[in-house]
Design a protein around this nucleic acid. Structure first.
Length: 119
DNA sequence: TTAGTGACTGCAT
DNA sequence: CATGCAGCCACTA
């Protein structure tokens, strides 16, 4: 599969994919990793997402959650609270343990590049 | 080239 | 359910 110049690297695809997730929907780290072409790089996706904030990229970072349907911000309470607030504001219902029903909001790629299968 | 890092995951307890 | 843990991986210094 031929990828466009702006999606040649893993990180490029990760950022691009995350940017595709629409309001009111969510995706897991593992899901992003899979569509980016490295099924077992969920942890790396988390790292990239953390870096994106430092770099200054504007992404819907709050729409990415873990495989359990919860927020993965054990270390930063403020950030976790913000993520919960943002998601709730978009209609994604979360319980007081920062978890939501994955199946009810999970996103699926619509791009011609990943709709059928990962690159 | 190598070793360390961590917004992850699946499975066992 | 909630914890613990080993395996995994792109990045970086």
């Amino acid at each position: 599969m031929n990828l466009p110049d702006n999606l040649l690297t893993f990180s490029d695809r990760v950022y691009w994919l995350i940017d595709q997730v629409p309001e009111g929907q969510i995706a897991t780290y593992g899901q992003i990793a899979m569509y980016a072409g490295s099924p077992r790089a969920a942890r790396a996706v988390g790292n990239l997402l953390r870096d994106s904030a430092f770099i200054g990229l504007e992404l819907p970072w709050h729409r990415i959650i873990n495989s359990a349907g919860g927020i993965s911000f054990k270390g930063n309470v403020d950030r976790a609270e913000l993520q919960k607030t943002l998601l709730t504001g978009e209609g994604v219902e979360m319980n007081r343990r920062y978890k939501c029903k994955l199946g009810a909001y999970q996103w699926a790629p619509t791009s011609p590049f990943w709709k059928e299968e990962p690159p």
